[in-house]
Amino acid sequence: MDVLTGNAGVFASGFFVTFQIVLLAAVGALVLGTLVAAMRISPLPPLRWLGTAYVTVVRNTPLTIVFFMTAFGLPEIGVDAGFLRIPLLDSLFTRLGTDVPYFRFAIVALTVYTAAFVCEALRAGVNAVQPGQSEAGRSLGLTFTQNLRLIVLPQAGRATVVPLGSVIIAMIKNSALAGAFGVAGDLFQTSDELTSAQGLPAIPVFIGVAAGYLILTVPLGLLLDRIERSQAVTR
């Protein structure tokens, strides 16, 4: 217990770093995943192929490789993910703006990887919407994007909430890899620092770290349950 209370600050800062990573990556993955899903169900074959290729490649690649590609592949071609230095946002998430690019690389890796799963969760939801709904939308003269936005996705959303939530929870856990790819001081790395370098006993340290992840994942799970239940009523 002393280990936990005595190092509360270390745990808290690790938690904060991890929280930033997963928040940004979750937003990124949802946006990118929706885009890829739109491509996969688009009426234009080239877009469909592109979307399918993305999912096939990314989903079947180990996350470590994706991290490796962002951490070492991007600098190789002169990219430091500077597009993530978004004004205002980088004053909220200070690490976005630093010259150390690995925080950004971690977000890129998690976003790119998770987007493939978000896409598939969305697509499963879209497939669960009766094709007649989209046909009715199309025959009213809605464009593809209007149809997706107004008719299909709102209905897919219901079938998607739970699988999408699982994808995000998996992503939160996957974020632990960031600590092995240049990001100093995330939650998982905290454990390594306290046990390996400072020689603290492993069990209480791991309890502290696990608690950090649970703080992120459990409320999300509960929220999903609630959404699912409230939608069951309206359905």
């Binding site: 709904q133 025959s139 709102p154």
Partner: peptide, 11 residues
């Protein structure tokens, strides 16, 4: 267009 199964927007 009017469909056999109505296809009203369910939501």
């Amino acid at each position: 267009m009017v469909f056999q199964s109505f296809n009203l927007f369910a939501h």
